[in-house]
């Protein structure tokens, strides 16, 4: 299961990179081609490795939030329709940013207490479920469902990790989150 998840995450990330680069180059109409080209380039071996293996070495698996937001990004560019509405994206990016702010500085040694430890027990899962209920009643139902999926995936041990933090966020979505929140605010 873990292996499939990791492969899926890398495929998604490469496809998203291909779509982004195509758009950046002004070739919006050819995003499909850009995605396919990126996946093809990724598997070409060079110097005993490939972009594919390198990416797998670098990121392993993504969190559920990253996965959903990337799927939304690709969905928009493949179908032309908004898979995740603005409210949902905003709620998910805000969750990722706040979560990362609580987790990463402390994890990197800023404090003696390591909040990552909370993710091994029940506490973080309960907090995530509580947040999902709040989002539901704040009319962010899709975002609420995504958070429930986070806990479900954790319980099903979709990845090697049994830590809820790993299902909730990862550094990629945390780094992107403030920029996306700003962009969403400016577009509003």
């Amino acid at each position: 299961m873990n292996e499939v998840w990791q492969i899926l995450c890398v495929v998604l990330l490469l496809a998203a990179a291909g779509a982004f680069l195509s758009g950046f180059a002004g070739l919006r109409k050819y995003r499909w081609v850009g995605m396919m080209l990126m996946l093809l380039i990724a598997i070409i071996p060079f110097a005993e490795t490939s972009i594919w293996l390198w990416m797998r070495g670098l990121i392993g698996g993504l969190s559920i939030l990253s996965f959903v937001l990337l799927t939304g990004y690709l969905g928009l560019h493949v179908t032309g329709k908004e898979v995740l509405d603005r409210k949902t994206r905003s709620a998910l990016y805000a969750t990722a940013f706040t979560g990362g702010l609580l987790l990463y500085p402390a994890t990197l040694g800023l404090s003696l207490y390591d909040p990552y430890r909370l993710g091994f027990g029940i506490i973080l899962a309960i907090v995530v479920l509580g947040l999902s209920v709040l989002l539901w009643f704040a009319k962010r139902q899709l975002a609420a469902v995504v958070l429930v999926v986070v806990v479900l995936a954790d319980q099903a041990q979709l990845m090697t990790s049994i830590n809820t933090w790993d299902y909730l966020i990862d550094p990629l979505v945390w780094i992107i989150a403030p920029f996306m929140l700003l962009r969403l605010r400016l577009q509003a």
Binding site: G109, L110, Y113, Y116, R117, F120, T160, S161
Partner: peptide, 25 residues
């Protein structure tokens, strides 16, 4: 960035069940 010790607690398959920070910074 930080340099510190930790104690991992894992099952015999290498799944980490708990982790305790030993110091900070």
């Amino acid at each position: 960035l930080g340099k510190f010790g930790e104690l991992l607690r894992m099952d015999t398959n290498g799944v980490v069940l708990d982790k305790q920070r030993m110091s900070k910074r």
